[in-house]
Amino acid sequence: MNAPASFARDRLTHLDELEAESIEIMREVVAETERPVMLYSIGKDSAVMLHLARKAFFPAPPPFPLLHVDTTWKFRDMYALRDRVAAESGMALIVHRNPEAERLGINPFDHGALHTDMWKTEGLKQALDLHGFDAAFGGARRDEEKSRAKERIFSFRSASHRWDPKNQRPELWSLYNARKGPKETIRIFPLSNWTELDIWQYIYAEDISIVPLYLAAPRPTVERDGLILMVDDDRFPLRAGEVPVERSIRFRTLGCYPLTGAIESEAETLAEIIQEMLVATTSERQGRAIDRDGAASMERKKQEGYF
């Protein structure tokens, strides 16, 4: 972060340290791998990751493309921000949609878990194979979920994109071992040591663009299975008797709109969001329908190649 010269003498703040560490990680990856790519999911973590990449390689644009593994079911606001941000960064944007999922019309309303599996898990593997990427940056953080606490910053995947918990390397100092076999790939998590609060504070301090859906506004919603869902477009099949109701809502995480629960909130500014977050009583992943099934589920998904 920018600091006046007299200030620079002082000790680094926690955000300065996290920033410097993430930048160091990204530069290592670019120096040591052949075809890196940044997975860009348009969420707040991706926004921070992209911002850090622009810092790491300035004045050059980041020397890798952005990859959006699309499901066609993201919020409209997300697509808008994606296209704007990619243009600003000077990076190539690759959008991959699993052609088979497209052909079969896989959607979150009719296909449940298969939706995530085909669009996201399979889609990601396809995209990495198709373009021959050997390293992919992801925005996951260790504080998101208990089983993530042990995830390495450099996470190795077999040729079939499987994660083997027994075959991960110790990470000492900031000396990352990026050597790998010809078909192996690496997922790199430069935000590993950031918490949700760090992310928000950094967005606030650096004035980073985020999808407006993170801020509260009146939006058309229905309540279903305990989640408040936003009716983002006319593909949303209303059940008998369901009438969209306008509520002041915001989202703590963003994914496919039919799968992402909103929270009722009046927080219209970043400062208010952070305030709400500090008194929050529900941790982040609960908004994602995907994580509801059991404590060990995330780990299983990871072994199968879900990012």
Binding site: M1, N2, A3, A5, A8, R9, L12, D16, E17, E19, A20, I23, E24, R27, R54, K55, A56, F58, P59
Partner: peptide, 18 residues
């Protein structure tokens, strides 16, 4: 000393710079 946020006059241990 080049950074995204503008050039610095000086920088200390722990910072990532160009």
């Amino acid at each position: 000393i080049v950074t995204f946020d503008g050039d610095l006059a000086e920088a200390g241990a722990g910072r990532s710079v160009t």
